[in-house]
Design a protein around this nucleic acid. Sequence first.
RNA 1: GGGAGAUUAGCUCAGCUGGUUCAGAGCAUCUGCCUUACAAGCAGAGGGUCACUGGUUCGAACCCAGUAUCUCCCA
Length: 880
Amino acid sequence: MSIAKTYNPADVEAKWYQRWQEQGFFKAKANPLKTPYSVVIPPPNVTGVLHMGHMLNNTIQDVLVRRARMQGKEACWVPGTDHASIATEAKVVALLKERGIEKKDLTREQFLEHAWEWKEKYGGIILEQLKKLGASCDWDRTRFTMEPELTEAVLRVFVDLHQKGLIYRGIRMVNWDPQGGTAVSDEEVVAKDTMAKMYHLRYEVVADSAQQAPQFMTVATSRPETIMADVAVAVNPNDSRYTHLHGAKVRIPLLGREIPVILDEYVSIEFGTGALKVTPAHDLNDYELGLKHNLPVIDILNNDGSLNEKAELYVGQDRFAARRNIVKDLEAAGLLDKVEEYASVLQTSERTGAVIEPRLSLQWFLKMEHLAKPALAAVESDEIKLHPPKFKNMYRVWMENVHDWCISRQLWWGQRIPAFYLPDGTYVVALNAEEALKLAREKSGNQELQVSDLRQDEDVLDTWFSSWLWPISVFDGFKDPDNADVNYFYPTNDLVTAPEILFFWVARMIMAGLEYRREVPFRNVYLTGIVRDDQGRKMSKQLGNSPDPLDLIATYGADGVRTGMLFSSPAGNDLLYDVKLVEQGRNFTNKLWNAFRLTKGWEVDAALPFANAKAVEWFSAKLNTTLAELDEHFDKFRMSDALMTIYKLVWDDFCSFYLEMVKPAYQAPIDPETLRYTTSFLETLLKLLHPFMPFITEEIWHELAERGPKDYVCVAAWPKPQSVSGAPELLSRMEKALEIVAGVRNIRNQKGLGPNKPLTLAAKTDDGTLLQDYDGVIRKLAALSEVTLVETAPAASVSFVTGGTEYFVPLEGQIDLGAEKVRLEKELEYANGFRESVLKKLSNEKFVQNAKPDVLERERHKLADAEAKIATLQQSLNSL
RNA sequence: GGGAGAUUAGCUCAGCUGGUUCAGAGCAUCUGCCUUACAAGCAGAGGGUCACUGGUUCGAACCCAGUAUCUCCCA
């Protein structure tokens, strides 16, 4: 039988994924006999494709879920997608445009038909990609935030919150995305630092009499096109420069409309010219100033960011075109004083990238105060733990300063707001038109009203208004609040997501969970970092610095990519992606493969006695100690540490030491006992590795032995640490033995002797038990023909000291006495220095008085060891 | 402008309540090896004033204060 020298993932990954599905291992159902463990996926955009962030995020989820499954829990990972209203609608609009169709030429129904068609065609690609990664989701549970059941949940919640008086409609300053043609929430606005221009404009002061020479006041603005919406100029009452203008009026440049000069301490005397143009319709602060001073509001913007007829000038031009033109005209009219560059912050839309225009509009809002309070308490009390905990601070600050949530969007793709307007302009809120009609008849007292008399609100709800219900709605907790699934799987256990959406999504899920089930939606929130390139830049399409995850999987194998991504991604830390990481991951799979290949190739001779008791006993101790460490890492959500712990256990302890200890000579057979132990160790390692590397572990599991129909490592029991008697002693003795091995190997290296040149070793010690017990191990790993005890140093030998004992490797004719002397003197010098430092500590009375007894004891030991070592070295030197 | 966090080896990070020679890991580096499981490998080695300056303490990477730099969040 021949096994490939390198592991070939492409051959096995699809096979095992299919088999797991056929076996139904990923399916979960309420089972009172088992402990539930559930995770809901952060639903990716339905039209999205897998990127590196998804890879990291979903690998972590899969590790958690697979481990829980092996621990015998009823593991349930619910997959699904998000309808992502702005992003998807923008994509559909762009697609239609390519085909020569403008959105404005379509009816709502026609547009939605196109959108659904597109969703059916491209939607869910990302879920297929997740299968390539090995994600063990219960695919039968796949949900979509805009499917009928989930839409119903959204509408029910809207109606309920409206009844509770938490949803209201009002005119507010909103963040307007002119490209998306919709309002967006505060959380969807991204601030970008830029250099902006500050234009100093001259406003003519309205003269008392026509005879006076015209006077001007200079007002600075970064958005000169908004002067047509000005309703006042404000100055600080304490600003002596403007005292003469108190009560005056000024003319808007070019337009000539007269507006008052008002006084308010809000105006900063230092900033700009100390005079502030007041534009209530297009700036939040100005709006509040306007309210205070009872000023009118003039909105000069259309939905698409162009100027409307209220502007009077530049009507129909985009705001940026209008800005260029008005600057030109102002300059020509001599009304532009100067232009300065200054560092400013540009507000942009997260979804479309367009520059946000603050704008007054009529929107739906959800009051947050009532919802935020318990949601804050849940995190403060650690009922929900954030990993890493540093995010707790951020969470608190945000929750204490939360604003009402603007939940309406001027889009078509999404859940339409269930508000129905009566002919008189009032409205009712109801789940559907029939219910609305009932309410409308009651409200108006008009029994003649028909459904056709009612007009439903045109807006849809913010996407997050459906995703905040996700942990409940995926278990049908709104439709049927007492169903077995939701009772069993809710609250879920862990949520894995990006810190960017801590407020968008995580905080709101906590609110919804507490409001609708009186229980938090999850216990742990694991916040991943952002995947960046090796220069620390965010991965982006524009930069082209993001590898295609599917190419990576094809090249390095899903297991290699998964482990590569987890090698260096502690919670909350950004992952600097480097192809070296996935190479390391791939190399690790190959290492494991070859360990398997070695053991698989052994022939057994049943007559042979058990020859490797020391190795087996040691590795058993090592394995069980590591197991406990591993569980601790997992419990603390230290995924990289958990992986690294297994990595070293497999590579260093199992492959480099254990297998080398028990490996028979070339083509020699192995004893049955050793093979039995070795196979069992390997099986345990496969189990530990499975959550990280599901495919290769399943492949080896089945290659290693004939397996029953349900015997998969995927559902094998997670190993529990067994107590091994005398484990610390076993570990430290083997460690000492391996130090001797390293000493010999070092000499081989220094002297340029090959790894196999037969050598002998002599030790000068009274206590030969270690050498005796580990004789086989030391001889084999260091390739020694003989280990002896001596009383004096053999002639012509190289020596080393470890564990207070001096060892000699006789090397006739190859010794450079001078070099050897120098080496020994150096070592002696170091040992003396060490002795001095310990002595100094011990002769410090205060230390002796204050230090804890065990610390003191340790120092005394160190001193004794050092002195013994010095004596040995001195002797060797003398004998040279 | 307000707040939070960080600064440890070339890189990415550990280092729990101060105490095993002023520190660990992985990767990278260097040296030597095609030693029949693996060159996607083996063996060995080197590499750090724990950002800086003070303070507390018998003792500080760890506690305190200040300085510098960086990152993130909010305005």
